[in-house]
Design a protein around this nucleic acid. Structure first.
Lengths: 232, 232
DNA sequence: ACCAATGTATGGTCAGACCATACCTAACCA
DNA sequence: TGGTTAGGTATGGTCTGACCATACATTGGT
């Protein structure tokens, strides 16, 4: 027998077919966040596969932050389309950091890049800074390193949000989530947070003033203060 | 009965427990890419759950690019730990773009940010530029817009790779994958690619010379040429 | 008009079976 | 002895059918 051009009968797994079908439905039918998918049993019957395969496909979509499943009955039950890339990105980062596939240095460099970009864009677009001010106030009242980092994270994520780019903001949130423990440790090692507070005020004022260049410089120096060991 | 402190018997789904157990195993046992996980049936028995739940957990990990399953028997069969965040990021972006949860503008802004950062770092670290030169040569021989974009993507991803940050490089690859069709259309609309070629040469030379500032400017102007409608 | 009991569709889980795959082993033959 | 081949076996992939908990829907009674 000649082996030329032979294709195995089945090259993709069933749940991948289901995945492709659902994705096709999303794009062709113009489904958007909030719309409901058919129930698992219906979907299985429509596609001629078992419920297990449908479930595995839905699990993938849930992992990617595209659907959210609710039990019970009613308009909100079943698989609903969502758009929450945040948790997916967070899981992705956490696991790959755990596998030593990525190093903290790379994460912090990425954060540095994003913060500079976001601060510049927030400044030049005259974004709302009330969320930043609120987070700043929270940091002043913080009684522990954990609490401080919590509000610090809110402050920096608020900058990313203010940039208006949801994708970049999502990456920012995931980065901060992934390095939470690391940040707490850094704050503890630092002891005095007054330097960080002054940095935050400087960033906030630069953004409020619309001074993008100063905002970028302020962010850069702030990170150098927060993680002195990582910057030469 | 007092209701204080009552917790429902089950708050997390079984496969999420499995997920947590596997993740704990990875971190505590120091498992790393290349190591094997127990077989699905063994895992199910060890954790006292059904094979379906184990499979759903493994499906999640596979979606996140953390494990890769091989059928059959032998040392390479079963669920093997990997570290491939690229495809996960690509799927994430593609689906969320399809759901209109993200707009192309945000993707291109993110690309702009990454390319500037990567070009600057590649330049100042004196990275190897042979991959860039190869991609450049490929673009010269391109006979269609698709082929041109293919090598153009390789060129820009090579810059990200040269920056030495694998996380940022992974995002770059995903961004390019997600906007492939959009890029092809942009090249077609442009017609003449000689401007883009000159931009690439300018970027390559700046990186080779180690001139970070010039590299950033060259990247910025290149993107303005490639996507004129998106820059004011 | 309100409220309680019942019905029902949903996702979540389980058990058990069968298939295709690919390695492993032992029997077999030269 | 050495190579080949046939069977064994562990693996993931899929299917079926069942049962549970949940939460809305419906019905009936007050």
């Amino acid at each position: 027998m000649d082996g030329t051009g032979w294709r195995p009968v089945k090259r993709t797994r069933t749940f991948e077919d289901v995945l492709a079908q659902i994705e096709r439905r999303i794009t062709e039918d113009g489904l958007t966040a909030g719309d409901r998918l058919p129930a698992e049993r219906q979907l299985a019957e429509q596609l001629g596969v078992s419920r297990s395969s449908v479930r595995e496909a839905l699990r993938v979509l849930e992992t990617l932050g595209v659907v959210s499943s609710q039990v019970g009955r009613g308009p909100d039950a079943g698989a609903v389309l969502t758009s929450r890339p945040d948790s997916a990105l967070t899981d992705l980062l956490r696991l790959h950091l755990g596998l030593a596939g990525l190093e903290m240095r790379e994460v912090i460099d990425a954060r540095h890049m994003i913060e500079q970009w976001a601060a510049a864009h927030a400044a030049s677009s005259g974004a709302d800074t009330s969320a930043l001010a609120a987070a700043l106030a929270g940091m002043d009242g913080a009684k522990s390193a954990e609490e401080f980092v919590e509000h610090d994270t809110a402050f920096h994520c608020a900058i990313a949000d203010a940039s208006g780019n949801r994708f970049i903001a999502a990456i920012m949130r995931s980065l901060r989530d992934s390095m939470r423990k690391y940040s707490v440790e850094a704050v503890r090692r630092l002891g005095d947070t007054s330097v960080l507070r002054a940095d935050h005020v400087r960033i906030l004022e630069a953004v409020e003033r619309g001074d993008a260049g100063e905002a970028v410089r302020a962010v850069s120096e702030h990170l150098a203060h927060a993680y002195p060991t990582l910057f030469r």
